[in-house]
Computed example of a mutant assay.
Amino acid sequence: MRVGNVHECQRFRLPAQIIADFQPVRNDRSEMLNVIGHLVCFMRREHPCMIEVAEPYLCRLCPLQECSGLRPLEDRQRVFVQEFKSGEVLADRGEDVIVEGRIAPNLFTILEGVFIRYRTMEDGRRQIVNFMFPGDLVGLQAAFEEPSAHTVETLIPGRLCRFRREDFTSLMREHPRLGFDVTWLAAQEENALEGHIVSLGQRNAKERLVYLAVWLLDRALSTCMANEDNILEIAITQAQIADMLGLSLVHTNRTIRALDKEGLVEWAQREICVPDMAKAADFAGFDRPRNAERPFI
């Protein structure tokens, strides 16, 4: 589709704002790129490409039960969750699982991969508010038939366990312990957000980056995504780091290089390494949880 051709936009039934945006961009490269970005986001959200898993895990064979930081389900709970579960899907990098402003028909538990949760402003800027790891529950707002206040996007290609929204009340009614676990997960999400808010308001650039690196690695270690060498293989761009921490791209780049020289955090293109977790946690004021097993559904 040729950029600037409004009739082509209309033929593809694009939103009025995108159609309007195409008119002034013929001679403005930056504006053209901005419009293309909006177009790509729109097409991706309108036509999700998550793939149905032909042979989903049986709950008794769920790989999450082998993770040291996650609490295995009891036998009775596994039987119920097996009935509660409606399937599994695969999501590629960049795909949206939950879309801001919409009521999602399903909830998900992350089995594999890492996801980002963010909110978007009207002008296209976004704020990443959290990262989500295996065992995390995605789309809780949908259970209460509320439009999602955020988008959840795949960062590392992932696999998700899917649950029907309309079955959520039976989980709360028939298994109060699982209902308590859902409440606990929501409370832990709030705790994580508080830590990130403190970073934005009080920590300097180095402290923000170290805090984020330690937090990511701590979550990865508890979900079997990182090894004992304190290395997490994850492709986070500097732009995504900047979106999370409220820093400019230039400031982010300079801070990453400074931390690498100081030996606190080694932030490469496709991996994060924190050589000394205790030292880094002390530097950033991060309190690592001790012997805490997270529940999952």
Rank of each mutant, 00 (worst) to 15 (best):
I234M: 06
V152G: 02
N130V: 05
I297Q: 00
G101W: 00
I103D: 08
V250N: 14
N291G: 06
G195T: 04
A281T: 00
T120M: 06
R208Q: 04
L209N: 07
A242D: 08
F163I: 09
R270P: 11
I110A: 12
E31W: 12
G69I: 06
I231Y: 03
E174Q: 07
L178C: 02
M244F: 15
C67S: 12
M1L: 11
G37K: 03
P147E: 11
H7V: 08
S68D: 09
I297V: 14
C273G: 05
G179I: 00
V274L: 03
P147R: 03
W184D: 03
E8L: 10
D96I: 01
T154A: 15
L107G: 15
T154F: 12
E271P: 04
T255G: 02
F144G: 07
Q23K: 08
R290M: 05
V210E: 00
T120E: 14
G4Y: 01
M225T: 11
P176W: 07
D92E: 14
E194F: 14
E66M: 06
V274D: 06
Y211L: 00
Q240Y: 07
H7R: 13
G101K: 00
V114Q: 00
R126F: 09
P147F: 07
L200A: 01
L58G: 12
T120L: 10
F296P: 04
I197Q: 14
Q82V: 04
C67V: 05
I272G: 01
S148E: 13
R93H: 14
G158F: 06
R125T: 08
G263E: 04
A104N: 13
V53S: 09
S148W: 04
Q238V: 04
C62T: 06
P48A: 11
M32R: 06
H7K: 12
S30I: 11
R254L: 15
V53I: 12
H196K: 14
L264W: 02
I18Y: 02
I51S: 15
N204V: 01
R13N: 08
L212R: 09
P147Y: 11
S86Q: 14
Q82I: 01
L39F: 01
L264Q: 01
G4E: 02
F42Y: 03
L140Y: 13
A268H: 13
L107I: 11
R162Y: 07
A281H: 01
A292I: 13
C161H: 09
V198K: 06
Q202A: 09
R76S: 09
G87R: 00
A280N: 02
G201S: 09
V210Q: 01
F133W: 04
D21R: 06
G158Y: 03
P289R: 02
M244Q: 10
V79C: 07
S30M: 07
F296L: 05
A213V: 00
Y118E: 14
V274I: 10
E262N: 03
L193G: 10
N5E: 09
E46N: 07
Q77A: 14
